[in-house]
């Protein structure tokens, strides 16, 4: 029977697995930072480094004081900090990234026991916190320094306004991340490449399946219920390329602490998160909602797994009862 997750055992037994996972995650994030540097300049790596350092300092101090053990050497804090920074605009003040990273570590990770124990994805919660507390700053996107964007509005805000813009049909424009948006999540082609690599890497294959399910579910809803007047395919393109949706699917979703164990449950989890992300886009208050969707999916998954287990137990109990009655 699949159980809802005591992954704390992994942390206590072997930190190497966590470290390996996190270092690979950092390596996979690097191309996004390179693309961001190309478009927005030195602000991108600077913000990423500041966020990573802030997260690591928070984890080092809080880990010692609260958890009474050294937790920072698994590099998870650095990954969380970098991911929070990637979802912010390039012109964000450093304190914004610091606050987001600190929240992710001090509120979402440490109180629940650190890496592999947090019930929510720390980077998603950190960004959600920033969105709720500083919405004006989080969506204050700046245009690229190198490429003149056709439109100074982000794709997500255009979708929210129900506006279709023809330049979205310029695939290279959209896939290469030349639209206005978060500093590290705009290049869909890089994210797709990372997804492909994840399928090739041992240990990340089924995690990548969750990401694929997320994107497939989001694409399906975008196709079925377009927010814009263009063709349905245009709607799919715009939805997948806008904001941090694809980034959340490929990088945030496969968090080992919250990912279910079996491949089919992972696929279901990804699909549920994709549906929630699109629902929040249709009904929610913010133009970027993927992180909120991930938090809802994190909360719902243990409930669904427990419900599934209870039903399975009930079936077994009924079968045993029938057997006893048959014998009697």
């Amino acid at each position: 029977m699949e159980e809802a997750l005591p992954r704390w055992k992994k942390l206590l037994r072997d930190n190497r697995e966590a470290r390996r996972w996190n270092l690979v995650s950092l390596e996979l994030t690097l191309p996004l930072l390179v693309v961001g540097y190309y478009y927005y300049g030195a602000a991108v790596p600077r913000l990423a480094v500041i966020a990573a350092l802030a997260a690591m300092i928070c984890e080092a101090v809080a880990g010692r004081l609260v958890l009474r053990r050294r937790t920072v050497d698994d590099w998870n804090a650095a990954v969380v900090g970098v991911w929070v920074a990637c979802m912010l605009p390039a012109g964000s003040p450093p304190w914004l990234a610091v606050v987001g990273a600190a929240f992710a570590i001090l509120v979402v990770k440490i109180p629940f026991g650190g890496t592999l124990s947090a019930p929510f994805i720390p980077a998603a919660a950190g960004f959600a916190f920033l969105t709720v507390c500083f919405p004006a700053r989080v969506f204050a996107y700046v245009p690229s320094v190198l490429v003149d964007p056709v439109d100074y509005r982000s794709l997500a805000s255009l979708l929210r306004g129900g506006q279709f813009v023809p330049h979205v049909r310029n695939i290279s424009y959209v896939l290469l991340g030349q639209t206005v948006g978060p500093m590290g999540t705009g290049s869909l082609i890089v994210i797709a490449a990372v997804l492909l690599i994840s399928f090739l890497l041992k240990g990340r294959r089924t995690a990548a399946l969750a990401s694929l399910s997320f994107l497939a579910a989001a694409a399906l809803l975008a196709f079925a219920f377009p927010r814009i007047a263009g063709s349905r395919l245009d709607s799919v393109w715009m939805e997948l390329c806008s904001g941090s949706l694809a980034f959340a699917a490929v990088f945030l979703l496969p968090d080992p602490a919250t990912l279910p164990r079996r491949w089919f449950t992972r696929a279901g989890y990804g699909a549920m998160a994709g549906v929630l992300a699109m629902l929040l886009r249709y009904l929610g208050s913010y133009e970027e909602s993927a992180c909120f969707a991930l938090l809802l999916a994190n909360a719902a998954m243990p409930l669904l797994i427990r419900a599934k287990n209870e039903i399975a137990h009930l079936k077994v109990a009924l079968a045993q009862k029938k057997q006893r009655e048959g014998v009697a």
Binding site: V107, P111, F129, V132, C133, F134, P135
Partner: peptide, 20 residues
């Protein structure tokens, strides 16, 4: 100005931290 603190989420968070 941290808007989120006014919301129930902020209330739960502050109370949780105080409880700890």
């Amino acid at each position: 100005d941290v808007r989120g603190i006014w919301m129930p989420f902020g209330g739960f968070l502050v109370v949780g931290v105080l409880a700890a």
